[in-house]
Design a protein around this nucleic acid. Structure first.
Length: 760
DNA sequence: ACCGTATTCAGCGCG
DNA sequence: TGAATACGGT
C-alpha cells in the first residue's frame, strides 16, 4: 500500500482525510478536484472500507473511467473494480434492472435515447393530428424532460394549474396529453427514456421503503463529482441515499456550472450547507494549471457574477505572457489569424500541434478554423461530431439487438421492420399502430399475431410480417445459448444488414460497412473478456451474452478508445466540451455580442451569469497563453452581418491584455462604424441588458428607418459601396433587401444590421 | 418504393 | 449557408 498523501497539498489532504459526515469540496479551476475525489476513494479503501459500500457518481463515462483507472493505480485492481463508480444514469440503470419489476418493468427494459424519444413524440403528434410546427418534438420533449427532472409525472402535470396556464399561453395546451400518451407508450414498450432512469429510481426509493433501506445501507459512502451540475431529481436521489449515514461528499465548482439549460440547478451546490448543517467545507484555491495572468484575468471575470461561493483562486506559477487579442474583419479572416498565430507560436517555440486548442461557443463556428488550418497543413481534430453510437448503421444493428432482447421495444421495431427493405411499408405500419393503440398492446403483439387484432393489410404483407417475427424470435431464443459475438454476427448477416451495406460501394457505404465491423469487434472484445476472467480464476457464472453487452453499452456515447494513435493535432471544440480539459495554448474565439454571450442568454441575469461562467471555463482551460479573438462581420444564416465586440472583453483588466488601451476593441455605438482609433466609451460597461435586444428595436412602428428603403433605390453600404436595391422582403427585424452592388455583386442584407444609406 | 426538389430552421449537449 | 426533412412526381 502506497502512502497516497505525499501527492497532495495540505488543503487536498485534509479534504481527503475527512471521511465521515457531510462535506463539500469547492474546487477552483485547475486545483486538483479529480485528484481529491480519486484519492478519497483510495483512502477509504486503504482504511478497509468494503468497495461495495462506496458509491461514486460522475456525469460522464469518461470521468468515471479515468477515475477508476487512477484508483487502480493507487490501490490495485481487486478493490477498485468493485466500487460502484459510474454515471448517474448507468448506476441507476443497474439498480433499475434489479428492482424495476416493482414498477412494472422487465429486467431487460430498453433505454430510449433522445433520438428514440423524439421519434416517439413525433409519432404521437402525427397520430393526434397535431401541427408539428406548434408541437415541435424538441420543445415537447423539453417540457416532458423538465417535468420528469422536477419529479412531476404526467398526472401531476395535467393537474398543475400553473403548468396548464403556461402551456395554454404558449399556444400548446395539449402537451400534457402528449406526456400521458408518451409515458403509456414507453410502458407498453418496456422502455425508459434517459429521464426515467432518474425519475423511476427516485420513485423506487420513495415508494418502497425496503428498497430505500437496502441501498441506504449498501452505500455507506456517497461521493458526487461535478455537484454544481446536478439537477433536481439527482439532488433528491442523493439526499435519500445519503440520509441514513450522511457520509456524503460532494465536489464541484459553482463558478463552472454551465449546464443550466438542461436542468442543472446551481442552487444545489449553493445551498448544500443548508441541506446538511454539519457540513464541513473545504476550498481548493491553489491553481496548478495556469499562469498568474490567466488566473487573475479569470478572477476578474467571475467577480462580475452575483451568485457564487466566495473563494480566492491563486497560483504559484509564473506571470506568463499577456492575453492576446485578435480582431478580424470577418469570421473567415478570424480563422486565418488564429491559424497564423498558431503557426507562429509553433515555429517560435518548437511546439507540437497538440499544445493548441481552439474553443468556440457554437459548433457552427468551427468551419472557418478548419479551412484555415487545412490551408496551412496544420493537423487538427474536431471534437463533438456524430459519435459512433449515433450513426445510422450502428443504431440499425443495435435496434436488431434491442428488439431481440425486448420484443416490445417499439422504436427498434419501427426502425428495422423494413430495413433492409422487406415490403412492410409506411401504410402497413400505420395500420399496425392504429390496431395496437386500439387494443392497448405493443406493436410487436400486433405484428406477430396480425389476425388476432384483425389487422387490415394484404395477405402478402401478413406473411412477410410472419417471416420477420420468426426471424426475431429465433434471435431471442438464442440469447442465452450463444455468446454475444457469435449471435451478433449471426444477426448482422441474417437480418440482411451486412449484405445491404456491402453492396453499397460509395465511400460512405464502405465506411458504414467498416463501422459495422467495428461494432462487431467491440462485441468480440466484450465476449473475450469472460475468457480472460476465467483464466484469472474468477468465478464466471455464464458466458457473456448479447443482452449483457447491450446493458453495458446502452449508455455509452463515445468510442474514443479506438483511435489513440495520432494524438498530435490541434483540438477544436465547443467550450462545453472543453470543460475539465487543459491546453498550453488556448484560443477562445468569436467574442462577440449575440454570439458569446449568446443572444438567447440576454433576457435574464441568471442566463447571462451562466454565459459568464462559460467564459470563465474557457479562459481557465489555458495553461501558458490565452488568446481571444472576434470578428467585425460574421456570416449568420447565409448572410454577412456586422457584429460588435463582446461585453466580456471589457471584463478583462487592461493590464492583462497584450494590446494597450488606445486600441481596445472598438465599441460599436451605432453612431458610426469606421476609422476613429479611440473607441473606448465609459458608458460601455454600464450597458443594460435591454439595450442589446436589437430585434425589439426593429419592430415595425418602433423604428421606421429601414422601412424607408424601397425597391429601385440607390444605396450605399459601408463595406460593399454603392448599389441598387433589387427587392425587399420580410417585416420588422427580419426585413431583408437584395442589393446589387457595383463592386461585389448581389448581396442579401438584413436591414436592421446593414445600415444602408439612401442615395437616391 | 424511391428519388430529386422544396422548405424549413438554426444553442451549448451528459446519458 | 447547409443539413434535415417533407412532399410530390415517376
Amino acid at each position: 500500500m502506497k502512502n497516497i498523501f505525499q501527492d497532495l497539498n495540505k488543503e487536498q489532504r485534509v479534504a481527503v482525510e475527512h471521511t465521515d459526515g457531510p462535506s463539500m469540496v469547492i474546487a477552483g479551476a485547475g486545483s486538483g478536484k479529480t485528484r481529491v475525489l480519486t484519492y478519497k476513494v483510495a483512502h477509504l479503501l486503504n482504511q478497509g472500507v468494503d468497495p461495495f459500500n462506496i458509491l461514486a457518481l460522475t456525469f460522464t463515462n469518461k470521468a468515471a473511467r479515468e477515475m477508476k483507472e487512477r484508483i487502480i493505480q493507487l490501490v490495485g485492481t481487486g478493490d477498485a473494480r468493485n466500487v460502484w463508480m459510474g454515471t448517474f444514469h448507468s448506476i441507476f440503470a443497474r439498480i433499475l434492472r434489479i428492482e424495476g419489476h416493482r414498477l412494472g418493468y422487465g429486467s431487460n427494459f430498453s433505454i430510449y435515447d433522445t433520438e428514440d424519444s423524439k421519434r416517439l413524440i413525433n409519432n404521437i403528434i402525427k397520430e393526434q393530428n397535431l401541427d408539428k410546427k406548434v408541437y415541435a418534438p424538441n420543445y415537447v420533449l423539453g417540457r416532458i424532460s423538465g417535468a420528469k427532472i422536477n419529479l412531476m409525472d404526467d398526472k401531476q402535470y395535467n393537474e398543475n394549474f400553473e403548468i396548464i396556464q403556461a402551456d395554454k399561453m404558449a399556444g400548446k395546451p395539449r402537451i400534457g396529453e402528449i406526456y400521458t400518451i408518451y409515458n403509456k407508450r414507453l410502458q407498453s414498450a418496456d422502455a425508459m427514456d434517459f429521464d426515467d432512469l432518474l425519475f423511476n429510481t427516485y420513485i423506487l426509493l420513495e415508494n418502497f421503503p425496503d428498497v430505500l433501506h437496502k441501498y441506504q445501507h449498501k452505500f455507506h459512502y456517497v461521493l458526487v463529482d461535478e455537484y454544481q451540475d446536478t439537477n433536481h431529481v439527482q439532488y433528491m436521489i442523493i439526499r435519500k441515499l445519503a440520509a441514513a449515514n450522511e457520509n456524503i461528499c460532494v465536489v464541484g465548482d459553482d463558478a463552472q456550472s454551465i449546464y443550466g439549460f438542461r436542468g442543472a440547478n446551481i442552487q444545489n451546490i449553493l445551498s448544500f450547507q443548508r441541506d446538511y448543517p454539519d457540513t464541513i467545507v473545504f476550498k481548493l484555491e491553489q491553481n496548478y494549471r495556469s499562469t498568474k495572468t490567466i488566473v487573475s484575468a479569470a478572477n476578474g471575470i467571475i467577480v462580475n457574477n452575483k451568485e457564487q461561493i466566495f473563494k480566492e483562486i491563486w497560483t504559484n506559477n509564473d506571470a506568463g505572457n499577456k492575453i492576446g487579442l485578435l480582431r478580424a474583419p470577418t469570421d473567415s479572416e478570424e480563422g486565418n489569424m488564429v491559424a497564423g498565430s498558431i503557426f507562429e507560436h509553433m515555429m517560435n517555440n518548437q511546439l507540437p500541434y497538440s499544445a493548441f486548442a481552439i474553443l468556440y461557443r457554437t459548433n457552427a463556428q468551427s468551419r472557418a478554423f478548419e479551412e484555415a488550418l487545412r490551408r496551412r497543413n496544420i493537423k487538427y481534430r474536431i471534437y463533438g461530431g456524430l459519435s459512433f453510437y449515433k450513426r445510422k448503421e450502428i443504431k440499425d444493428l443495435l435496434a436488431y439487438f434491442r428488439l431481440a432482447i425486448n420484443n416490445r421495444d417499439e422504436e427498434s421495431l419501427q426502425r428495422v421492420i423494413n430495413y433492409p427493405a422487406r415490403g412492410i411499408g409506411k401504410t402497413s405500419m400505420e395500420n399496425v399502430v392504429i390496431a395496437a393503440n386500439a387494443a392497448g398492446v405493443s406493436l410487436w403483439e400486433v405484428v406477430s399475431d396480425p389476425k388476432k387484432y384483425s389487422l387490415q393489410v394484404h395477405g402478402g404483407i401478413i406473411s412477410r410480417m410472419g417471416s420477420f417475427t420468426t426471424m426475431i424470435k429465433s434471435f431471442s431464443a438464442q440469447l442465452k445459448s450463444r455468446d454475444a459475438y457469435d449471435l451478433a454476427k449471426h444477426i448482422a448477416s441474417s437480418s440482411g444488414i451486412l449484405k445491404d451495406l456491402y453492396e453499397d460501394k460509395t465511400p460512405e457505404g464502405v465506411s458504414r460497412y467498416e463501422n459495422i465491423e467495428e461494432l462487431l469487434n467491440a462485441v468480440k472484445d466484450f465476449t473475450d473478456q469472460s475468457i480472460a476472467d476465467q483464466e484469472s480464476g474468477e468465478v464466471q457464472e455464464d458466458l457473456k451474452t448479447l443482452d449483457g453487452f447491450m446493458a453495458d453499452i446502452a449508455l455509452l456515447t463515445d468510442a474514443d478508445d479506438k483511435d489513440k494513435e495520432d494524438t498530435n493535432h490541434v483540438s477544436l471544440m465547443t467550450i462545453h466540451a472543453a470543460k475539465g480539459l487543459e491546453f498550453p495554448y488556448v484560443f477562445v474565439v468569436g467574442l462577440e455580442e449575440n454570439l458569446f454571450p449568446s443572444m438567447m442568454s440576454l433576457n435574464s441575469r441568471e442566463d447571462l451569469e451562466e454565459e459568464r461562467r462559460l467564459f470563465y471555463v474557457a479562459v481557465t482551460r489555458a495553461m501558458k497563453q490565452l488568446t481571444l479573438s472576434y470578428a467585425d462581420n460574421r456570416y449568420k444564416w447565409g448572410l454577412l452581418s456586422p457584429s460588435e465586440a463582446s461585453r466580456f472583453l471589457e471584463e478583462i483588466n487592461e493590464n492583462f491584455l497584450e494590446r494597450p488601451m488606445h486600441s481596445r476593441p472598438k465599441v460599436n455605438t451605432g453612431l458610426k462604424s469606421t476609422g476613429s482609433s479611440g473607441g473606448f466609451t465609459p458608458s460601455f460597461g454600464k450597458r443594460t441588458l435591454k439595450k442589446i435586444n436589437k430585434t425589439e428595436l426593429s419592430q415595425p412602428g418602433y423604428d421606421t428607418r429601414e422601412d424607408d428603403i424601397q425597391t429601385g433605390m440607390e444605396v450605399e453600404h459601408q463595406r460593399f459601396g454603392k448599389g441598387k436595391v433589387v427587392s425587399i422582403e420580410g417585416y420588422g427585424g427580419n426585413r431583408k433587401a437584395t442589393v446589387f452592388f457595383q463592386k461585389v455583386g448581389q448581396k442579401q442584407l438584413l436591414l436592421k444590421f446593414a445600415r444602408l444609406k439612401v442615395l437616391k
